[in-house]
Nucleic acid binder design. Structure first.
Lengths: 114, 114
DNA sequence: AAAGTATTTCGTCTTTTACCGAAATGTTCT
DNA sequence: AGAACATTTCGGTAAAAGACGAAATACTTT
């Protein structure tokens, strides 16, 4: 189905999801760290993550009470690999991405998650 | 703005727009030929075309009472060039695309357009 | 100038998407 | 087992997207 082929583009059509991909290329993060970065509700972040996971961009790994999200190191779909390795070409050096990158290093899940 | 960077993906997020791009890679077409191919209302096709034109995927050339649409031969945005030259990688050989390709050659704007 | 045809614009409707807060789930720690 | 915390799922809302038909526009031809 052609409709299915559009899913990869739909996943990339949201600025917050692009920020998540770029953030995870910098560092493995849990949901609440991403929530802190994007300033969205927890449930909204979770929803974005499930879309990115469904498409194969990212993977999750449970670790205690946290769920760590990271870039999928071996996507089965070559289109996903292609996007992940050329993401900067597609989104350029956006100012939001740059400031996100700085902020990521100051995130401390012990402090953030109540 | 990061939001602007997503526009290219939004444009590619609709199956009908992907069909239009592939169709125009086969042949220059006018609005009513595309309407016939996609079986959509004229106004809907026009809307899709304006989105693709806005993003730089296609160009229009008025020719008498017709408006011919074709693939932009020299996109200013390298991302558009990249997509256009690798479109098959992204959407594969979908059955709809294949049948579209056959149908395109039988389209006759003189017959179609009342 | 008027009629005819191709296309675009406009108003409206329906579906989808992004978001939130609350409730439910799963895990850890006491 | 129960409290505490991270995350997901659920229900609902507002905005965006895709569709249509009718009206407006643009160009040709008579």
């Amino acid at each position: 189905m052609l409709e299915d082929k559009t899913k990869i583009f739909k996943a990339l059509s949201d600025p917050n999801r692009l920020r998540i991909i770029k953030a995870l290329q910098t560092k493995v993060l849990c949901v609440c760290e991403i929530r802190e970065l994007l300033q969205l509700a927890n449930s909204t972040v979770s929803q974005h993550l499930s879309i990115l996971k469904e498409e194969g961009f990212i993977i999750e790994e449970k670790s205690g009470k946290w769920v760590n999200y990271s870039i999928n190191p071996r996507p089965s779909d070559p289109r996903i690999s292609a996007i992940l390795s050329t993401i900067d070409f597609w989104i350029g050096d956006d100012s939001v991405i740059v400031s996100d990158k700085k902020k990521i290093f100051s995130l401390d899940r012990m402090m953030i998650c109540c």
